[in-house]
């Protein structure tokens, strides 16, 4: 269960790639196989589960392509607990 989620307005993107460099979990990449209506290779999310909803992409984007959501604090800690349990950090 991802901690965050970004929505990408594909046709606003100019493929400048600033977000791909700034993303702390490196899940943004330019879509080399597709073009948007303006003829750019738009950005896409390569691993939706890894998003942490930090909004760094939205902060650096010159074209306001991103809308960012983050899990509320209560569920965020629950998600973290589940993840740790799965990783065997906490038993039971």
């Amino acid at each position: 269960m991802a901690l965050g989620m970004v929505l990408i307005d594909v046709d606003r993107c100019k493929g400048c790639g600033l977000c791909t460099h700034i993303c702390p979990v490196s899940i943004l990449a330019l879509s080399k196989d597709t073009l948007n209506v303006r003829g750019y290779h738009p950005v896409m999310v390569t691993d939706t589960e890894a998003c942490i909803g930090c909004a760094s992409c939205a902060m650096i984007c010159p074209d306001v392509v991103f809308t960012v959501y983050r899990r509320r604090r209560e569920t965020r800690s629950a998600v973290a607990r589940t993840a740790s349990a799965q990783a065997g950090v906490i038993s039971g």
Partner: peptide, 30 residues
């Protein structure tokens, strides 16, 4: 959008929906 997610970044109301003429990566947009 899952119910337990809150919006942390939204399009500013004081910005029009127009696509800018700036080159890709131009800091003017920021």
């Amino acid at each position: 959008v899952p119910e337990d997610m809150e919006q942390v970044y939204a399009y500013p109301r004081s910005l029009t929906q127009a696509n800018s003429h700036y080159c890709p990566g131009c800091v003017h947009g920021i």
